[in-house]
């Protein structure tokens, strides 16, 4: 399994991602943002951080880095792409995922533990989870307030593209459990094909018990299980199979 972690100027969770992915026995490499090719990779991770200092808007400048043409091409060919935090913001800016990020409604940087409910367990990134499973992991962001217009939100919900939602101890999405004001308490979404996931919570920081939890392993383990062919494709919610509800 070959995994690439893209390093932009200002990425600061690249080493955390590397370490977490390495712990699964995968062959992981850093990919410099000036590179162009992603040939031979099975999974590409856009890590968290502050690419280009979050200048203009978070992810706005990184989206034009040379490697991003390769990322878009890789995603369009069906390759697995995972954007975490700043990586999610870059995926929104480049248009692989719909919507945009606004500053948190609470006027501060949120560095906290959150609970996420798995809303769709038929994606390459959640195929080992059960629907409704609640995962604990940290968030650390100032711009994590997910916004999309009403028509886009309806479409995302209808197609099962909302993969993770912020919930409380009872597994219920409430305004109090929503750390940033995101529309529909959205913490993570995929493309219609399910092969590109963007999420704000730092799953890579929840991959070792010593660091406070291992729930992030569900996401990486799912992706590796999917890539190794251990999951029946028919089970997965892929493009064109219509509404799920």
């Amino acid at each position: 399994m070959r995994v690439g972690v893209v390093v932009f100027p200002g990425s600061n969770c690249d080493a955390d991602c590397y370490r977490a992915i390495e712990s699964f026995g995968a062959d992981v490499k850093y990919i410099w943002y000036q590179d162009r090719s992603l040939d031979g990779y099975d999974l590409v991770v856009l890590p968290g951080g502050f690419s280009y200092g979050d200048y203009l808007r978070a992810g706005a400048i990184a989206r034009f880095a040379p490697i991003m043409d390769g990322v878009v091409e890789f995603a369009e060919a069906g390759g697995l792409v995972l954007g975490i935090c700043n990586g999610f913001q870059i995926l929104l800016e480049c248009g692989l995922l719909p919507g945009a990020m606004l500053p948190n409604v609470v006027p501060r940087f949120r560095c906290d533990g959150v609970r996420l409910r798995v809303e769709n367990a038929h994606t390459p990134f959640t195929c080992l989870c059960h629907p409704g499973q609640v995962l604990s992991m940290p968030i650390a962001h100032a711009w994590g307030n997910y916004y999309a217009d009403e028509a886009t939100l309806v479409e995302l919900e209808r197609r099962g593209q909302v993969v993770f939602r912020y919930v409380n101890e009872e597994g219920v999405p409430t305004p109090e459990a929503n750390p940033n004001g995101s529309c529909h308490s959205i913490a993570g979404i995929t493309t219609r094909r399910g092969n590109v996931l963007g999420m704000m919570p730092h799953l890579e920081r929840a991959c070792e018990a010593l660091l406070g939890g291992t729930d992030g392993r569900w996401v990486f383990a799912s992706a590796f299980e999917f890539l190794s062919g251990g999951v029946e494709l028919g089970r997965l919610h892929l493009a064109g199979d219509g509404p799920r509800h």
């Binding site: 203009l56 808007r57 706005a60 400048i61 034009f64 929104l92 800016e93 719909p98 919507g99 945009a100 606004l102 916004y147 999309a148 217009d149």
Partner: peptide, 8 residues
């Protein structure tokens, strides 16, 4: 393309 994000 860059200075504004037409979504918001």
């Amino acid at each position: 393309r860059l200075l504004a994000n037409p979504v918001i």
